[in-house]
Nucleic acid binder design. Structure first.
Lengths: 298, 298
DNA sequence: ATCCTTATACTCGAATTGAGTATATTTATG
DNA sequence: CATAAATATACTCAATTCGAGTATAAGGAT
């Protein structure tokens, strides 16, 4: 087999925190790029390399870290091919000073259509006409658009963030598509663009995280040590992009051994809520255990 | 940032087929290695590179292809670091001639404890004593072992194939651990070893495939054009490693729009069964749609 | 004392699930 | 040819889960 070639490898990180009821992502260049850096020689493993590098650059300790996807750049210069390995990392947003153009951004700035917590945002109205034009051009597009955007009465599936972004890209309804020279089909969907394929990587991270929280208790990496059941619910709703039924949520959580009471109460308006922490077993296993959250769809 | 270095990239493929009621994986060296090859310059994308290379080498057309994981070799020679990108590919086992040491192997030869279709194989009896010794050495090991191997009355979770292999490796209960100089804790678990980390990659593939078949109709890449409901059930049981309730399986499958009748009947002993094929919509979307199979665990 | 706000508890019917039994239609066998 | 064996298909039923709602408790603010 011939054609093996030297290659340049880079790590791209999607660092996620939740604060003020919004999921945030750590960005460079005033929100237009994800943090990235070359794979360095000293690193034991890719994951260790990423942790080390993020902690040095941002001062944030990463809790859960998960590999997302590896991309190869097809048409880079003769100088050598480039491979990007992307990661999702969870942390708590601390008020540490951030360097010049480093900032936390609400991830729904990039994907407004993914936030369905408040009803009737009218976002679909912006997207649907362009989508309709694209669908009419070929026969096999209909069912894909229907499934991704729940066009008929079908239920919205929050895990399809990546599929939806890819569809909008193919349909020429995001700026990146126009930038890459693809045909457009109308006004761009709302939401701001990013460098290269960074918005696609962010969509991958959202899809993955939304899928992960359903069966593994990774949310605890995003919450403070103590929290109320409503805090937990709001955190999950922020990530999932839709609201949950309070009573059913509590029933499911309390039916498991996920949490334990701290014995203290939260203050604030209204009746004080019990404070909880994740149970010792869960903390020891660092999110290895299984969980059930009321997000699975029939 | 310094330390960027040229890197060698290689693709490793886990090619899976199901025949004679057993999940098979394509191997080299009489079953001790997975097919692997360097990333070549002509390839558009990693996935295209893999398809191209597998089809040229084996004559098998890959249906569903899914990226598994990217590893970096930490302690390779000064000559340059190596990155391995592993993929899962599904195909049908055809009777094409295979080269010298290329062969299809039942994947349960490598993971006998993962096949729970026949009850009481006694495999657990071989593993449990060593596991018990390992658990006793540190406090936080108990719950992990319990969860992975369903030690108390907990239900067996078939998706944990990778976690179980990793635990056995850490516990020094597989040959690869001894080979890598780790302490052993008793007799090795049954199952044959592979080169380097290939058995770990195979475990990753099994975990991923077992998780995937629950919500995406990828099985259709493994079955012939027409098949009976029992064929479909047996295929899924082979992959999942446990049996399903026939009536409930049929109820769930027929309650969806997954299949359509061909109008013909299968022959053989007993009452002839209706032949089905996957519905046109499913085939068109090439496994993009959602499905439900009776495998999800409470 | 009353209102507002949030927490917590409980209810109830619909839907799903797990496990079982009964019947139909073919091939093999004496 | 009658019967057994094997397989397919259909139906039943109770337990559990789920979605959505109502009711009550406990704090602060006015």
């Amino acid at each position: 087999m011939s054609g093996a070639q030297p290659i340049h490898a880079e790590l791209i990180a999607v660092i996620v925190a939740v604060s003020d009821g919004a999921p945030k992502v750590l960005t460079l260049s005033d929100g237009s790029a994800l943090p990235a850096g070359p794979l360095e020689s000293g690193h034991q493993s890719l994951q260790a390399g990423l942790r080390n590098w993020v902690e040095r650059q941002t001062g944030h300790t990463l809790g859960h870290v998960e590999q997302l996807y590896t991309f190869a750049d097809p048409d880079r210069s003769r100088a050598g091919r480039s491979i990007s390995i992307s990661y999702l990392g969870l942390t708590r947003e601390t008020r540490t000073k951030l360097g010049g153009q480093v900032s936390w951004q609400d991830w729904y700035r990039y994907f407004p259509w993914e936030d369905r917590r408040a009803p009737a945002t009218g976002i679909d109205l912006t997207i649907k006409p362009g989508l309709a034009r694209w669908v009419d051009e070929a026969a096999d597009r209909q069912s894909r658009a229907v499934r991704c955007f729940a066009l008929d009465g079908a239920p919205w599936n929050e895990d399809l963030t990546l599929s939806r972004y890819e569809l909008l890209y193919e349909a020429g309804l995001v700026r990146e598509a126009a930038r890459d020279g693809r045909p457009v089909h109308g006004d761009f969907a709302p939401g701001i663009a990013m460098t290269a394929d960074h918005r696609r990587i962010l969509a991958t991270a959202i899809s993955r995280l939304r899928a992960t929280i359903k069966y593994r208790p990774v949310v605890f990496e995003l919450l403070p040590d103590q929290f109320t059941l409503l805090d937990l619910q709001h955190c999950i709703e922020a990530l999932a992009g839709h609201t949950l039924h309070k009573g059913n949520f509590r029933r499911l959580i309390e039916g498991q051994t996920l949490l334990e009471e701290t014995g203290t109460l939260a203050s604030g308006p209204g009746r004080p809520a019990k404070l909880f922490r994740f149970s010792a077993a869960i903390r020891a296993e660092r999110a290895q255990a299984g969980t059930r959250l009321p997000l699975a769809r029939p």
